[in-house]
Structure formats: structure tokens, C-alpha cells
């Protein structure tokens, strides 16, 4: 068996803020422009891709984030098995989308690290390093944004009142996590 080494091993807790990595979470980038692409995804996964910018949709098993007019991220709501990286959802979509030339399916499970933040100081933390205006975002569960935090590209999804999922590219994740902890310790 291969050992699994995720980049962020610690969970951190501050007054009004908790941070931890969640893994393994299957993540796919799905891209397409055609109407048939959207309906094929809908039928295959029983999931409607959000077409409104900066929003997300979800089912019991999956969440879809709007990234651009022809790009979405789909991730699994539950963690998957560590000793296998064959994902059913990916296989289904490869068959229904890639093989039929409707669009592109790319596995980005380890491209992005999912950091979950909880607490009422999340946005105080973001304000120390992101130029994005979170005033509306913070009050609308399901909102999604791609922006910069501490000079690093991030995707942030408002999953609940005072809870967000933050996606960052794996190679940047340790730097960002360290930066967030440094910032959180001063809030």
C-alpha cells in the first residue's frame, strides 16, 4: 500500500476561528460550452451546474462551483477511500462527456487542497490579505469567489453561516496555511 501524505496535518483553533484540511476529497474540473454538455452532466450526476456567476449548487453527494462561463469544479461532499484513486464519478463523466466530445473532464483531486474554516472571525482573517469585497458574500450561503489571499490564488465557497471551504493549489497550501495561522493569532 502507498502511504498518503497530505500537505496540512494540523488542525488549528483560535478564538472565533478553526482551520483544518479535509481529505481525500475528489475534485474535478469540468469544462464545456454546449447546451448538451450541461444536460449530460445534469442527467449523469443528477446535479445542475450553476450558471449564475459566483454561485454553487449541491446534491447530497456532490457540490458544483461556478468558476467561469465554461468551467466548473465538482467536488465530493464526503471523503473517499485512501488506498484507491479510481473515482466512479470521473469514470461516468469521462464516458458521457469526454468520449462524446461534449467537453473536458480533468481530475484535480490533488491539484487543490480543501481547507475548511469555521468561526465568526473568518472574514476578519480574509480582510488582512484579500482585496475581495466580502460584504455581500458573507451573507449569502452558496456564494463562490476566485480571488487572491496573501498573494495566492484561492477559490472560496460560503458553505454555511460562519463556515467556508477554501481551495488552494497544493504547492501553495503550506505557505498559505502558515500565513493564515500567523494572521489568525493576531485577530
Amino acid at each position: 500500500m502507498l502511504n498518503y501524505s497530505n500537505p496540512i496535518t494540523e488542525q488549528k483553533s483560535y478564538s472565533g476561528l478553526q482551520l483544518k484540511e479535509i481529505n481525500p476529497i475528489m475534485k474535478l474540473i469540468v469544462r464545456g460550452k454546449k447546451r448538451e454538455f450541461l444536460s449530460a452532466i445534469g442527467q449523469s450526476l443528477n446535479l445542475l451546474l450553476p450558471n449564475e456567476p459566483n454561485t454553487s449548487t449541491r446534491t447530497d453527494k456532490l457540490t458544483a462551483l461556478w468558476l467561469s462561463p465554461d468551467e466548473w469544479m465538482i467536488y465530493s461532499n464526503e471523503t473517499s477511500n485512501l488506498d484507491n484513486n479510481d473515482y466512479d464519478i470521473e469514470n461516468i463523466l469521462n464516458k458521457k462527456i469526454s468520449k462524446t466530445n461534449l467537453g473536458a473532464i480533468t481530475n484535480v483531486t490533488d491539484q487543490f487542497v480543501l481547507i475548511n474554516l469555521k468561526g465568526d472571525k473568518i472574514y476578519d482573517l480574509f480582510e488582512t490579505g484579500s482585496p475581495f469585497n466580502f460584504n455581500k458574500f458573507r451573507n449569502k450561503v452558496g456564494s463562490v469567489t476566485q480571488t487572491i489571499l496573501a498573494k495566492i490564488d484561492v477559490i472560496i465557497q460560503n458553505t454555511n453561516q460562519n463556515e467556508v471551504n477554501l481551495f488552494v493549489r497544493r504547492s501553495f497550501s503550506q505557505h498559505l496555511f502558515s500565513w493564515m495561522n500567523d494572521s489568525a493569532s493576531r485577530l
Binding site: 456567476p53 467561469s68 462561463p69 482585496p131 475581495f132 469585497n133 469567489t145 476566485q146 480571488t147 487572491i148
Partner: peptide, 9 residues
């Protein structure tokens, strides 16, 4: 596509 954003993006 995304609405109003800061120039730094």
C-alpha cells in the same frame, strides 16, 4: 463575467 473586482485581480 464575475462583476466588480479590484484591479489587482
Amino acid at each position: 463575467y464575475c462583476g466588480e473586482r479590484e484591479q489587482s485581480e
